[in-house]
């Protein structure tokens, strides 16, 4: 199978990609990381640049379609490939997009529904036992890919964490890709609501499956002076002790396994 690293993990959070690699290997996969990959093209697509996004999509399809499975540590990027590439492309490319879509998964869904991790090969991290962790459903994962229980089950079974639920768990956090740059004030209002909801849940850590949401929320929390730790869900499932939370300072030898 092939790992779709995602541009945000590549740049902001390599430990997410390293944790994904390790988890996929633990599940028994032979993982390749196509070297020429860049990004799924969603920012342009959502800004209405269908031509540019189409160029990116064709490139991704050609690069990844030889793999049995494509896995991304992001519901948003996986959703782009699964739901939007087939909508964007025509003719032969549409068929190739549909074929790739049927083999593309977000990582927690893949590790639950397709290639489950072997039971009992990891003891829950004791550093997490006293933490209160809430889970943030990203919209694309939730509504485009129906991801809801998978990350919670993995957190429970692999990290010994019973995720706290946010009252408005199906409401967007305000990231929205280019939206947060085009309409920063509205976006920040939405982020503040999500942070308030997180604090009200009693959590001291918010985990999620999409770095976009997490970076945006971490940035807003930092601006508001809110003390919360932000992590991608694979960091907890794999190894919580790799460095600090998102936006909390440099990691110590981040992610190297």
């Amino acid at each position: 199978m092939a790992l779709f690293v995602t541009c945000l993990a590549d740049v902001f959070r390599p430990s997410v990609a390293f944790a994904s690699l390790a988890l996929l290997k633990a599940a028994g996969c032979r993982v390749s990381v196509p070297r020429a990959q860049t990004c799924c093209g969603q920012p342009g697509y959502n800004s209405g640049d269908y031509r540019g996004a189409g160029d990116v999509a064709r490139r991704v399809i050609a690069m990844f379609e030889s793999a049995d499975y494509v896995v991304a540590p992001s519901g948003s990027c996986a959703g782009m490939i699964v739901k939007h590439y087939p909508r964007l492309l025509e003719g032969e490319w549409k068929e190739r997009a549909q074929a790739l879509a049927s083999r593309t998964f977000e990582i927690t869904a893949f590790l639950t529904d397709v290639m489950p991790l072997p039971a009992g090969d990891r003891t829950p991290d004791t550093a997490l036992t006293n933490r209160k962790v809430a889970y943030h459903d990203s919209c694309a994962g939730l509504r485009e890919l129906n991801i809801r229980e998978q990350p919670r089950a993995l957190l429970r079974e692999r990290a010994g964490v019973q995720a706290l639920e946010l009252e408005k768990r199906d409401v967007c956090c305000g990231f929205g890709g280019t939206f947060c740059a085009k309409m920063p004030e509205i976006s920040a209002t939405m982020a503040s609501e999500k942070l308030r909801d997180t604090i009200d849940s009693g959590a001291d850590m918010l985990v999620g499956g999409d770095l976009g949401c997490l970076l945006s929320l971490a940035g807003r929390a930092s601006r508001e002076g809110i003390d919360l730790e932000f992590r991608h869900v694979v960091e907890l499932i794999h190894d919580h002790r790799s460095g600090q939370g998102i936006g909390a300072g440099p990691a110590n030898g981040a992610g190297r396994q």
Binding site: V5, A9, D10, V11, F12, R13, P14, S15, A17, F18, V33, R35, C180, A181, K182, P184, E185, S187, A188, A191, L215, S216, A218, G219, R220, S222, R223, G243, Q244, I246, G247, G249, P250, A251, A254, G255, R256
Partner: peptide
């Protein structure tokens, strides 16, 4: 990134090298 930094801080990358660089 004026749009972003009007309302949020900008989280710094966790490492001085990209994943691709480290992986290679």
């Amino acid at each position: 990134a004026k749009g972003w930094s009007a309302a949020r801080d900008f989280p710094a990358p966790e490492s001085a090298n990209t994943f691709m660089h480290q992986y290679n």
